[in-house]
């Protein structure tokens, strides 16, 4: 597929838009449909499209596998540590109300961080699974 100009140009045009849409879904999840899960899948779809058109090696240069493993773990750690912080601030585990000056601000910050953690883990795990499957086909 590397020599097909139509695919290359359409992919180059689409990938930034897909990533932009993923970021919109990630950070606009409070107001519209979406959230970390969907955004993570859409973000990984952009990189999978890149891998399909430009080759697996090129995609692995953008996000090396060890970064992906770090990202997947970091998402879970970020989520869990938000809960630990709220524990230390004197509330229940994952009660975000104490994170900000008011309850609403705390909830906003908590939900933002938690969704970010979800998005990081989902993006990384989807790409890990895709690279693991697609990488088996290499000679």
């Amino acid at each position: 597929m590397k020599r097909n100009p139509i695919l290359r140009i359409v992919a180059k045009f689409l990938i930034p838009l897909i990533i932009l849409f993923a970021l919109y879904v990630q950070f606009h999840g409070d107001f519209g449909p979406g959230g970390g899960f969907q955004a993570g899948v859409i973000f990984s779809a952009a990189l999978i499209l890149y891998a399909l058109v430009f080759g697996l090696e090129a995609a692995e240069k953008i996000i090396p596998p060890h970064i992906l493993r770090l990202l997947a773990s970091a998402g879970v750690v970020l989520y869990a540590s938000v809960g630990v912080v709220s524990l230390f601030l004197g509330a229940n585990y994952l009660d975000y109300s104490v994170l900000g000056s008011t309850q609403i601000k705390g909830q906003h910050l908590g939900i933002l961080l938690v969704e970010l953690g979800v998005g990081m883990t989902v993006t990384a795990v989807m790409l890990i699974i895709f690279f693991a499957f697609a990488g088996r086909g290499r000679p």
Partner: peptide, 14 residues
């Protein structure tokens, strides 16, 4: 309570 208009996100994340 959460200031999040999308109830699904409020339930899911909070």
């Amino acid at each position: 309570e959460t200031g999040v208009p999308n109830i699904v996100t409020a339930v899911l994340a909070s």
